[in-house]
């Protein structure tokens, strides 16, 4: 399985802001387990139609990837950037990310320094039928540069955070990665 919850980066301003989108598709298995239809002849009161939506936990993961790219890019992906803490994740209870919707993530860096980074931002839910965007979630996240903070522990030399999947996403989104050439 591919652990990449973004489809395209729209804007990446170094050390400042990253905007990315994800299209929610009915082809994604996870939607069909969350939530499947219930057909119970013995307990008809429990019956319900299927309600496929992207779990909000994966919406948070998408934000972590968007904000993580922002933080990693700020230091040319030399740091291993790990999500340390979700300070806040507030969702609009009236909205859900069903098939055919698009999520637009906007992550802003409050600070990035040697130890890590604080980020905040929004997730908007775009209705493909109308193009209208509504605020779906507000999220705050803290990242740790683990080579700086986990003294005494050794990590592999290669950057296991920013794998080829992420670098491919950056390249196909038109982000210049001259230092990696």
């Amino acid at each position: 399985m591919r652990w990449i919850w973004l489809d395209r980066i729209l804007t990446l301003e170094k050390g400042a802001r990253c905007v990315a989108i994800k299209n929610v598709s009915a082809a994604e298995d996870v939607l069909h387990d969350h939530f499947p239809a219930v057909r119970d002849p013995k307990h008809p009161a429990r019956n319900r139609e299927a309600f496929p939506v992207l779990p909000n936990t994966l919406v948070i993961e998408g934000f972590a990837q968007c904000a993580g790219i922002l933080v990693g890019h700020a230091r040319d992906f030399r740091e291993k950037v790990l999500l340390a803490k979700v300070g806040k994740a507030e969702f609009n209870p009236g909205l859900s990310a069903g098939p055919g919707t698009t999520l637009r993530y906007t992550a802003v860096a409050d600070r990035i320094d040697a130890a890590g980074a604080m980020t905040a931002g929004t997730v908007e839910l775009i209705d493909s039928a109308t193009g209208s965007a509504r605020e779906f979630a507000k999220i705050e996240m803290m990242f740790s540069h683990i080579d700086q903070n986990m003294k005494g522990l050794e990590f592999p030399d290669e950057n296991f955070v920013f794998t080829d999947q992420f670098m491919d996403l950056l390249r196909r989104s038109g982000v210049k990665l001259d230092h990696l050439a």
């Binding site: 340390a84 803490k85 890590g116």
Partner: peptide, 13 residues
């Protein structure tokens, strides 16, 4: 443990 870094960041701000 990670909260101490978070608290430091927020106090700085």
């Amino acid at each position: 443990s990670i909260d101490y870094l978070d608290i430091s960041f927020r106090l700085e701000k």
